[in-house]
């Protein structure tokens, strides 16, 4: 048995349960037995660090696709030879970016090729290149949208005011005239705007208006407009009226009212024009009239 130099697989047979009853009883009364038993008990309590198989598979796929595209680049010299044919076919095969547009008072939820979700608020346009989606998750946005991003490669929203990129999270971007506002609801997002670069964690919002930027905390878990409310924090009033115009397809005429100095903090509903106008205007002490066709609102001091 153990002391028998010729039995060079004794211990192996033991832990594999291959010893005869006689052998096992002998071994149990051997002084070495408890030491070996302890080693096995100890080893059986060990395990290597967790392996996230789905994450590894996703990583593999993104690398695999990346390598695929780099090999296409190498093919360029050969492709060039057949350029004239490519041009002719190109006319038919060229697919423009996919684009989504919402009109006054509409919201639209779109599932992107990787399962990420994008919800557009009223009067917004978003477009992306579907054929390159695997390697480049890039959305061009004008207006406002909320994103639920699946884990994966970098996800970027490009606007005229700046760029927001993330790895997998929930956030909303609002880019209108010179107002740029980002709310991060889950995970982390990185915001680059006018040479300023900042990282937002969950519950932090960023805003740049003309040249001034600020950050603040908030506690909602989804953007208010997803529940048919528009919400503002210390925003110059013209942006609030612009939002009213977009939600209700109206024109607001600010006759002789000096609006520039006002800012607005509060919310208005997106499905009741009367209440919305009253809420905003009463807060600011402005009177207004609505035209017969309910399309024009005239503000008066």
């Amino acid at each position: 048995m153990l002391d028998d130099k010729k039995d060079d697989i004794f211990l192996s047979r033991w832990i594999n349960g291959e010893l005869s009853e006689k052998e096992l009883n002998e071994f149990r009364s051997h002084p070495e037995y408890t030491h070996y038993k302890k080693i096995i008990t100890g080893v059986d309590a060990l395990h290597p660090k967790q392996y996230d198989i789905e994450k590894e598979l996703a990583d593999l796929k993104s690398k695999r696709n990346f390598k695929k595209s780099s090999s296409t680049i190498k093919l360029w010299p050969f492709v060039a030879a057949a350029a004239s044919i490519v041009i002719i076919f190109g006319l038919f095969l060229f697919t423009p970016d996919i684009s989504y547009h919402t009109n006054y008072g509409e919201t639209l939820t779109v599932t992107l090729p990787d399962g990420s979700e994008m919800t557009l608020n009223a009067k917004s346009t978003a477009s992306f290149d579907e054929s390159n989606w695997d390697t480049q998750r890039n959305i061009t946005l004008e207006g406002e949208a909320f994103f639920k991003v699946q884990k994966g490669s970098k996800f970027t929203v490009t606007t005229a005011n700046g760029e927001v990129s993330v790895l997998g999270t929930q956030f909303s971007v609002h880019s209108q005239k010179s107002l740029f506002q980002v709310h991060c609801f889950e995970g982390k997002v990185s915001v680059a705007s006018h040479k300023e670069h900042t990282i937002l964690s969950a519950g932090i919002a960023f805003r740049r208006l003309d040249k001034n930027s600020e950050k603040w905390k908030f506690s909602t878990s989804i953007p208010s407009w997803l529940t048919n409310t528009s919400s503002f924090k210390n925003i110059p009033i013209q942006y609030v009226f612009a939002e009213l115009e977009e939600q209700y397809n109206i024109i607001i005429v600010d006759d002789n009212v000096k609006l520039n100095k006002h800012t607005f903090t509060g919310t208005f509903p997106n499905n009741n024009l009367q209440v919305a106008l009253r809420t905003v205007c009463n807060t600011l002490g402005i009177e207004y009239t609505i035209s017969q066709d309910r399309k024009t609102v005239v503000l008066k001091k």
Binding site: D8, I9, F10, L11, S12, R13, I15, N16, Y36, I39, I40, V43, D44, L46, H47, P48
Partner: peptide, 30 residues
């Protein structure tokens, strides 16, 4: 064998040697 609970036969296949060799290595390791 101990952590991944592989049989000697499976380990032999993975490491391209005989079951006998695996048994010897197990004994030696212990």
């Amino acid at each position: 064998s101990r952590i991944d609970k592989k049989t000697y036969k499976e380990i032999a296949e993975i490491s391209n040697v005989s079951v006998k060799a695996i048994e010897k290595l197990m004994h030696k390791a212990l």
